[in-house]
């Protein structure tokens, strides 16, 4: 049952990731990216990472994809008028990505010897309580620095988006 669910979610994720790349219309690409992100969120549930599941959906589907779709609408790109690369460049891109896939899969060749260290532990490392405990004890300084990073990104975006005619 779990394995069938894994195969289904993997198929959905890979198929819609391919459709992100090969859709002509940027709006369809963004919508297929949402489907991919929801499939990955399903994988998080399968791995009992409930907190990350919720955060993933809030951050990606709620914030990042809205930003993408808003920019697509703002720039009026919802038509397939994009110039395409020449077919030899497309072929070279496909070859490069395929070779990278071969290298990555080949580098995973020895992982069959990996065995799960402790199988029947409490298995509650993914819930809010234990993750929050780790986040606010061991990773307190990175957590604060991440907030400074988000503030810096916000200030930078406001500076970038300001119209140049005003000054």
């Amino acid at each position: 049952m779990t394995l069938n669910l894994f195969y289904f979610l993997s198929f959905v994720a890979v198929f819609s990731a391919l459709m992100v790349v090969f859709s002509k219309n940027p709006v369809y690409s963004a919508l297929y990216l949402i489907v991919t992100l929801f499939a990955i969120a399903g994988h998080y549930i399968l791995m009992k990472a409930e907190f990350l599941f919720v955060v993933h959906i809030i951050v990606y589907a709620g914030a990042i994809m809205v930003l993408f779709l808003y920019v697509i609408m703002l720039l009026n790109l919802n038509k397939d008028s994009e110039p395409h690369k020449s077919s030899i460049l497309k072929f070279a891109a496909a070859i490069c990505a395929g070779l990278l896939l071969i290298v990555l899969v080949g580098s995973l060749k020895g992982t069959e010897i990996l065995v799960r260290a402790e199988t029947n532990t409490a298995a509650t490392i993914g819930d809010v309580k234990s993750l929050g405990k780790v986040l606010f004890t061991d990773f307190l300084l990175p957590f604060e620095i991440a907030s400074v990073l988000l503030l810096a990104a916000m200030v930078g975006v406001v500076m970038l988006g300001k119209s140049e005619k005003e000054h």
Binding site: T36, L75, L77
Partner: peptide, 29 residues
Amino acid sequence: IPIQYYLWLSAVLFSIGVLGVLYRRNAII
């Protein structure tokens, strides 16, 4: 689920991402 399945799935997704960066000309994609 064995961990190799997740590693293979991630390798495939990462390669699709690289393919998209090399394949498309639209900066949003």
